[in-house]
Design a protein around this nucleic acid. Structure first.
Lengths: 139, 139
DNA sequence: AATCAAACGAGAATCATTCTCAACCTAGCC
DNA sequence: GGCTAGGTTGAGAATGATTCTCGTTTGATT
């Protein structure tokens, strides 16, 4: 399916795999720059895009706008607080169990998915609760 | 939970609700600019961010980098081709049925979610198949 | 009407990402 | 070896969506 990876692409993917969690393009570049396989920023982004097209790399965007990359073989998903923006991994993937009806797919070949829950973390719920009380107390 | 919406915020949300599908910030601004409730670009983004924090608006990023906004009450999800980038709505949401174990949530209050499948559309599978054959035929 | 705080918007600033293009490999061939 | 064609690289410039700044406006309250 995906053609053979070039040496550079393998280095990039390897670097991505060794990082715990997700990395931004800039960070990945900084990290590679200090490794024994440095490469230019343009090259990092070029291959990141290519690997995404081949379904080997996924990318998600935080509410802050930051783009984070990770290898797709990690089936990680997240809970993200819409208020404070903290994001935390979800233990295991509940989508594996899901069957997509073939009729819905209509020829589409799924390679991986992203699932993300947005809501309020415990801290922000408390903070908002307090703020609401304060408001009520000051009519 | 979310404080009362200001007039501007209601206009913005209304505009978002009347557009079919999803809109980029720029497009929404352009659209409002020609309506009877024009507003500045800064204001559009300011409130879009605020509404996201209140869980009323969601945003997803296409592989092309474009950011698209939609009201969260629409429970739409998508199939996106990693190769050509076309994106197509999925009939109905298979996540509704999912139960998240409370233990996994640990105080987190989910408001909405995003689910997106990435893979190859029928056309790109064919194109790749042909390319592979071409390669095999030219050793 | 006077005062004050909050909301607005034009334009500047930011910054991740993409583009440009000259230099540089690599493989195949003479 | 020397040569060419084709693809890859990376420094720096360009892009463009989003955010910030800050003087102005609005609107609520007294």
């Amino acid at each position: 399916m995906s053609p053979k990876l070039s040496a550079r692409q393998q280095q990039l993917l390897a670097a991505l795999r060794t990082t715990a969690g997700e990395v931004s393009g800039q960070d990945l570049h900084a990290h590679l720059r200090q490794s024994n396989t440095p490469m230019g920023l343009a090259t990092v982004y070029r291959h990141l895009r290519q690997l995404q097209q081949w379904g080997l790399v996924r990318c998600r965007h935080l509410p802050s706008g930051e783009a984070l990359f990770a290898p797709t073989e990690r089936d990680d998903h997240h809970l993200t607080c819409v208020d404070c923006g903290t994001t935390r991994p979800l233990g295991h993937c509940p989508v594996q169990a899901l069957e997509l009806p073939g009729s819905a797919l209509d020829g589409f070949l799924p390679l991986f998915h992203t699932l993300e829950f947005f809501g309020l973390c415990a801290a922000c719920q408390q903070r908002q609760g307090r703020a609401a009380e304060d408001n009520a107390a000051r009519p």
